[in-house]
Write a protein that binds this DNA or RNA. Structure first.
Length: 396
DNA sequence: CAGTTCGGAGTGTAAAGTCG
DNA sequence: GACTTTACACTCCGAACTGG
């Protein structure tokens, strides 16, 4: 809002990325700057970590577009957890230079956005209004609304103790592409897992690296008669003659081998392999996000995903009960159902409040009921001891 | 249309569990 | 004891809603 302090165009913070920059000799796709290599997965494709996505390298400089839309040169594959690049690395195109950092970057997806920074402790006013606070006291917002006198830190509830957590499922650091090894037609082609390498032991169901429901591959025989159908979630990778297939543990991003970065694995993707037969490569159903069935919902319902429905102050998970999200988006507020109820409730509450407040505003006496509790008709718990500033807000 | 409300995604971190 | 994993507590974004 315009009223909320200029939280606006927060200076683009350098974004930590799980992938490394392209090594010397590799040319990132011109649509993104080296600083943001690799680019976010195309819209509609599977969210991070994308099984893999494809971008033309080298000659496909937007400044010199290929009018014929010819097949792209070898691809650059950001491939979790390591990197795999087209082989051999294409020489820089004539006149091609790395794009400037200001090159128009594709809109950042939510998963690519800079991390939100939170203050350790919001003041009671901001907390009650669910608004951004800052470390200073009085905070900017309270000053702005003239409620600086009531701008104090709230008290943090003590964390529950003695919660049983059960045995942890530790991530396997040295995941091996063992079961994923299938010798291809010419002896040096193999199937590689699309997405994170398979976990060798109990997978971490809450880990986003768990390979989700990826649709079976398109008919490979249509591309090459020698192809066999890969195991679900795998795609063909060809290793050039003499280049050893990676039977060794797949290095993790950032892993150093004798002080050196993990090796870059050359590979081929057969021409015409479905997702890459057109340029630019369209989102392929194989890599599109699965429809309704989300692994986290089905694989382990008990696992709490980051950002799982927040428990109310009373511990209820109203949102879950009501199926709060629609396609991962916020529930549209409608006048029907619970929303309608809430609306009515709120109106009622407002009425009651304005009556009750009357001459003594919350901001003045410094006491009140938290908004989230929606203390309508006093039916909610009143345990929140936050100082509500809605009186102050609505009064300004 | 500016301002308010609030659902819930995203973040921080303490507690519990694991490992060397 | 250090590290990792998990989940609680919390912040605050942003869409829905309200009132002038």
């Amino acid at each position: 809002m315009a009223t909320e302090q200029a939280k606006a165009p927060a200076p683009a913070q350098p974004q930590e990325h799980v992938y490394s920059h392209p090594p010397p000799g590799m040319i990132p796709y011109p649509h993104f700057s080296p600083a943001s290599f690799p680019p976010p997965p195309p819209p509609g494709t599977y969210p991070h970590p994308a099984p893999f996505f494809t971008y033309a390298a080298g000659p496909h400089d937007p400044a010199h577009p290929d009018p014929a839309g010819a097949a792209p040169p070898p691809y650059v594959y950001p491939y979790a957890p390591g990197m795999m690049y087209a082989y051999p690395p294409p020489p820089p195109a004539q006149g091609y230079t790395a794009p400037p950092a200001s090159a128009p970057a594709p809109p950042a997806s939510p998963t690519q956005r800079a991390k939100r920074k939170q203050v350790k402790m919001a003041c009671t006013n901001c907390a009650a209004a669910c608004k951004r606070c800052d470390e200073s006291r009085p905070c900017e917002r309270c000053v702005k609304y003239g409620i600086a006198t009531t701008c104090v830190d709230g008290t943090r509830k003590e964390r529950k103790k003695g919660i049983k957590r059960g045995p942890y499922k530790r991530k396997n650091k040295n995941t091996i592409v063992e079961s994923a090894s299938f010798t291809g037609p010419d002896g040096d082609a193999e199937w590689q897992p699309a997405g994170a390498p398979p976990q060798t032991n109990g997978t971490n169901p809450t880990s986003p690296a768990s390979t989700p429901n990826i649709a079976p591959a398109a008919p490979m025989q249509a591309i090459h008669p020698a192809f066999t159908v890969p195991p679900e979630g795998y795609y063909p990778v060809f290793y050039p003659n003499g280049f050893p297939a990676p039977h060794a543990p797949v290095p993790h991003e950032g892993d150093a081998v004798n002080g050196h970065p993990p090796p870059v694995m050359p590979f081929f993707v057969p021409a015409g392999f479905p997702p890459f037969s057109a340029y630019p490569p369209p989102p392929h159903p194989m890599y599109a996000a699965p429809p309704a069935v989300h692994p986290q919902a089905t694989v382990n319902p008990s696992a709490t995903a980051p950002g799982s429905p927040k428990k109310g102050s009373d511990g209820s998970t109203e949102a879950q009960v009501n199926g709060a999200t629609v396609n991962g988006k916020k529930r549209p507020r409608s006048s029907a159902g619970k929303a309608g109820d809430a609306k009515a409730k709120r109106n009622k509450a407002r009425e009651a409040k304005s009556k009750a407040d009357g001459d003594s505003t919350v901001a003045e006496n410094g006491t009140g009921v938290g908004d989230h509790g929606d203390g309508a008709a006093g039916e909610e718990d009143q345990t929140e001891e936050v100082v509500s500033d809605d009186a102050a807000e609505s009064g300004n």
